[in-house]
Design a protein around this nucleic acid. Structure first.
Length: 273
DNA sequence: GTAAACCTGGCA
DNA sequence: TGCCAGGTTTAC
């Protein structure tokens, strides 16, 4: 589920409710996620204060008062839901971890497919975060010149390159499809053969789509919920993702579907070249 | 590079 | 019953 806009949305809903709170207890109900939780996970987290919440790529970082952070990745189906002290805690099959805060609120990590990940580590040195490319909104690092450097050393498709977290942080299948539509570029085009003008379009389209998606609080195509259980609204604004056969929003040509790098891709054969 | 792996649920 | 899913890692 969660790409950059969804993680950013969770961050914004959770931050005011968890920053400054301390952890009074941790229940690990199922430790087997993408990587198993370490046996000391609960005791390491208990007693710490959450100093600040932030995001890096698709990771949510709960900075703790000891220089480390709870690093969370939601995989395909993960959720982080905060229940206030007044709300009942009735735990389901896929509620794997419960973090109890000092005001009685609880943060529940739920993940049916268990592709998600929780880990406590120093974000400055954590291997999880090492090698991730620039944030799309970092105008000093993510620009045309930067993409030109990648253009020289890869023969992959433009879709593959934008999906690569080493190239740019936080993009996934929905938003790469949307970005390529706005940039007017087909997903199977060779990245090495894009013009400088097209790289420029990609940078602009990336920021435009992500800004719009964050404004609409992410995409709830099936089950995304923010940190307090609300659905996002970007699914109503999708231009191409999961719209195969439907009319293009610009020219009414039927949207095509094709597989690129094992992932479904959608594009308008008229608007995208 | 490309494919398969990890896991569950929903839908045709 | 089989295929698909918003992600990432690992192995040919």
């Amino acid at each position: 589920v969660p790409e950059l806009p969804e993680v950013e949305t969770i961050l914004r809903t959770l931050a005011p409710l968890v920053e400054g709170r301390s952890v009074v207890g941790v229940d690990v109900r199922c430790a087997v996620l993408r990587r198993p939780l370490t046996t000391d996970f609960a005791e390491t987290l208990a007693g710490r204060t959450v100093v600040r919440l932030s995001r890096r790529a698709k990771y949510l970082l709960f900075a703790l008062d000891d220089r480390r952070a709870l690093i969370a990745h939601l995989g395909m189906s993960g959720r982080l839901l905060l229940l206030s002290a007044a709300e009942p805690l009735d735990l389901g099959k896929h509620d794997h971890v419960v973090i109890h805060l000092d005001d009685g609120a609880r943060v529940v990590f739920n993940d049916p497919r268990r592709f998600g990940l929780l880990m406590i580590d120093d974000p400055e040195t954590s291997p999880l975060l090492r090698g991730i490319g620039p944030e799309p909104f970092d105008a000093g690092r993510f620009d045309c010149d930067y993409l030109e450097r990648w253009r020289r050393k890869t023969k992959r498709t433009v879709k593959d390159v934008l999906m690569d977290q080493h190239v740019v942080a936080g993009l996934g299948n929905i938003y790469v499809n949307e970005i390529l539509f706005v940039a007017g570029i087909r997903p199977r085009r060779s990245f090495a053969r894009l013009t400088r003008a097209e790289l420029h379009l990609l940078v602009d389209a990336t920021r435009q789509i992500l800004t719009e998606a964050i404004e609409h609080r992410g995409s709830s195509i099936s089950d995304f919920l923010d940190g307090i259980g609300r659905r996002g609204g970007y699914q109503w604004r999708r231009r191409v993702y999961d719209r195969a056969g439907e009319p293009c929003v610009r020219c009414h040509t039927a949207i095509k579907s094709v597989v690129v790098g094992q992932r479904s891709s959608f594009y308008c054969p008229n608007c995208q070249r």
